Simulated assay, not measured.
Amino acid sequence: MRVIDYKTAAELLTMEVCIPVMEEVLADLSAGRAEMSLRQVVPLDKPNLLGLMPGFLRKNGVAGAKLISVFPHNHVYGNPSHQGAVALFDTQTGTLLAVVDGRAITAVRTAAVSAVATRALAREDSAVLAILGTGEQAASHLEANLQVRPIRQVRVWSRTPGKARRFIEEQAAVLQGVEASAADSVRQAVENADIICTVTASTEPVLRGEWVKAGAHINAVGACRAPDRELDSALVAASRLFVDRMESARNEAGDYLIPLQEGVIPDTHIVGELGELLEGRIEGRTDNGGITLFKSLGLAIEDLAAAHYIYNQAVLRQKGVDIPW
């Protein structure tokens, strides 16, 4: 068994390589070439939780699970909100191949999936990016979106204004040649934005439909439980909605479930899965004036595909630590 720590996993799984890995595995999932079940969640002391996310990459011959803790307020202590590990098994022999740091995978794969959605749904001339939130996912979403669209301007919002300014300073190397500013309000951040990424820890709407311009694309990432949402119902109703997995969205996506419960949208409001779009089985953006929305929940197969890539690269480059098992 190979143990691959955070530093090694982060070194091997760059955003550049992760985007096509996510593109492939999402298509595989929607086409039945990969399997997964709903995540199992054990509530801890509020608002913390422990999650188990199993899956099977049929064509790769590997299966496994991600075990992760989610502590939304960990930033107060200087710790990441998401921590855990991915266990990878060979499906021919049942052998445990690797245990890979889960935080490194979560940080990159989540934004890489959003980049896949941005590339598939955002207008090709999208130049203004708004990021709501300043945590680890804000940094990775900045990098990811810069890789798939010609971004010339970035606006960042945080509930604590100083954090937005600090974020921009810390991302100076990534932002070379891009104008960046800290917004005083969400409305100011998203005004005329072509792409909006919501990566907050909020359980109540922070983004309202009246603030979003026609033709924008939104990656909604932060809320991952049925009672929680980052978007108001009017915005969801006005958007062409895509998800990473239909089953997950119908059980876990508050951004979809709450407007549904309110009667604002029908149960057919979800156009389909991102993988179906990549496979050419559904239509994406239908006009330049429409709003497209990708609701991301994070999937086990994304973690397994990333872990499998990291494992193969670690073996090839002789990275990680082999432990007799």
Rank of each mutant, 00 (worst) to 15 (best):
P161K: 07
F89V: 14
G290S: 15
V264T: 15
A104S: 15
V271Q: 03
G162H: 06
G263H: 07
V86F: 10
T160F: 00
S185V: 11
H75F: 13
G290T: 03
V212Q: 09
Y311D: 02
A214R: 15
L142M: 08
R166Q: 14
I4Y: 00
V116A: 00
L316K: 13
V17L: 09
P43S: 14
L57K: 08
L297W: 05
L26S: 10
H217R: 11
A138D: 02
L142C: 08
D90V: 09
R208E: 09
E23Q: 15
A127N: 11
H217M: 11
A107G: 04
N219T: 13
T118H: 07
V148T: 02
R225I: 04
T8Y: 06
A307S: 11
F89M: 15
T106H: 02
L44F: 12
A65L: 13
I258E: 04
H217G: 07
E283L: 00
S81M: 06
G263S: 12
V154M: 01
V156W: 01
Q40G: 13
Q92K: 14
T8M: 03
G320K: 12
K213Q: 14
N60R: 15
G215A: 06
E283W: 01
S126H: 08
V76I: 15
V70A: 12
L278E: 00
V236N: 03
E136K: 01
M36G: 03
D5L: 14
S248E: 11
T134D: 00
V221G: 04
V156F: 02
D5V: 14
A87H: 12
A122R: 03
R187A: 13
Q153L: 11
S81D: 05
A111I: 00
S81N: 13
L121R: 03
E170Y: 09
D287P: 03
I310C: 12
G162F: 04
N192M: 04
S233M: 01
Y77K: 14
D255M: 12
I131Q: 02
A111H: 00
P161N: 07
L207S: 10
T110Y: 02
T134S: 02
P266K: 01
E252G: 04
A122I: 06
R240M: 14
G290A: 15
V148A: 10
I151F: 09
L274Y: 03
L293N: 02
V271C: 05
G162C: 06
I270P: 00
I195N: 12
V99G: 12
R165H: 11
R2G: 01
H217D: 09
T292P: 08
T198V: 13
A193N: 09
A104D: 13
A65N: 07
E276Q: 15
L304W: 05
V264P: 04
A201I: 15
I301L: 10
A120P: 03
R33M: 14
L297R: 09
I218D: 10
V148F: 02
F89A: 11
A307Y: 03
A9P: 05
Y77E: 15
L52R: 05
V25S: 04
S126K: 06
V116L: 01
Y309A: 06
G94A: 10
A144L: 06
A300R: 02
V148D: 10
A117K: 03
D244G: 09
A223Q: 10
I265C: 11
A117R: 01
R317H: 11
T93C: 01
